[in-house]
Amino acid sequence: MSEKIHGLPKAKIERNYLTWSLWMVPLAAAAVCVYFVLHDIVFGGPTITIYFQNADGLQAQNSMVKFRGINIGEIESLKLAKDGEFVAVRAKLGFPARNLARQGSIFWIVRPEVKLGSISGLRTIVSGNYITVQPGDGPRTNAFVGAEQPPLPPIPAIQLTLLTGNLDSLEPQSPIFYRGIQVGEVMGFHLSDDARDVVVEARIREDYAPLVRMNSQFWNAGGINFHAGLFSGIEISAESAETVVSGGMAFATPPDYGPPATNGAVFTLNEKEKDEWKTWNPAIQLHNVPEGKTIKTSLPQFNPR
């Protein structure tokens, strides 16, 4: 039959390779899905639950968990815990932040705060409240009890207990001064068992710890001291501008100083400074570090406020 039609070219017949390669398209689609799921399993950070007494200002699917100023996680849901005492905040941490889900990590809510002596969290007025964390190094865990107040950054320090009759204007994180230099801060306070004293927990930075001797004298340096004299006029003094509003304390060490204060040493917190203490000016060797032990550098941010 083909001989009858003259001069007609003959079309080429070729194998069709496209048919089987076409099935690569659904295969690739399935591969993408598998990748998504695997990526979530391998690079999914932990989901943690933080219990707060008050989750004011947090929003599910909206607020974030931040650490050192960057976003490390997202808040998935806010639920009232079963007993109704706490709000259970479920947060999904990112893969790089997986090591923050450890016992000892302290989570707290950053809110705008204006109080005597400090203004903090100003950015949160615009951005909304968020959760931030101070890392711990315990074993891994997924449940945390949130701190109601920002914790003090952990620094090497010795802890002291001070007994006083009246707290006056002291509050947590009130500074402790030695000759006007802040060397520590108040960590907390409570009434003694018999309610006769106020027990103040304080810490002195390790670098300055040798300054505290067993016979050192502490006094409350908060507020303003008025000295009215017939010939000297009125003298107003304060330890620092900060102590005027937020309270604070100071201490002095006598020239015939005793052994260095140990961790947990107990002192009396006097209500006023005695004139005699002002003249004390002992020479005390700081950085009394045994050989072979390196000096720990303190965090650059000593007082977070």
Binding site: S2, P9, K10, A11, K12, I13, E14, R15, N16, T19
Partner: peptide, 12 residues
Amino acid sequence: QEVGEVPKGCVI
């Protein structure tokens, strides 16, 4: 043009 027999899996 002229097209011959097209086996399965082939194109013209």
